[in-house]
């Protein structure tokens, strides 16, 4: 599968990764090559095969409904690059 620039730009936006003009051409080639290499899976007959979403043997553990976390805004904010008055700060979103 050969990717085109528009697709790579669209994927990069979905992933919120800024790709410079210089970087994009080699990236297109690399990604196309990797995807092409993975396409050998198309050879495999997977009719009636269930996807292996869960390798884990565990049955889902249900916790009891009680409060055992929280009440530590300082800890939650301690690594934040920008915060004030107990809030995280981000550039304003307009909609």
């Amino acid at each position: 599968m050969s990717l085109d620039k528009a697709t790579v730009r669209a994927i990069a936006f979905l992933a919120r990764l800024d790709i410079s003009e210089e970087a994009i051409e080699p990236l297109i080639e690399e990604l196309s090559a990797i995807l092409h290499w993975t396409e050998k899976l198309q050879e495999v007959d997977t009719t009636n095969v269930e996807p292996a979403s869960y390798v884990s043997v565990s049955k889902l553990y249900w916790r009891e409904d009680f409060i055992d976390c929280g009440g530590y805004a300082e800890t939650v904010l301690t690594n934040a690059p920008e915060s004030t008055k107990g809030f995280f700060l981000v550039p304003k979103v307009v909609d």
Binding site: R63, C69, K85
Partner: peptide, 22 residues
């Protein structure tokens, strides 16, 4: 009392980020 996947409280109107589990 607690959230769907964590043990933080669900009450309305509390001081910011005080009902937040990691």
């Amino acid at each position: 009392r607690a959230k769907l996947f964590s043990g933080a409280a669900t009450s309305f109107g509390r001081a910011p980020n005080t009902q937040v589990a990691l």
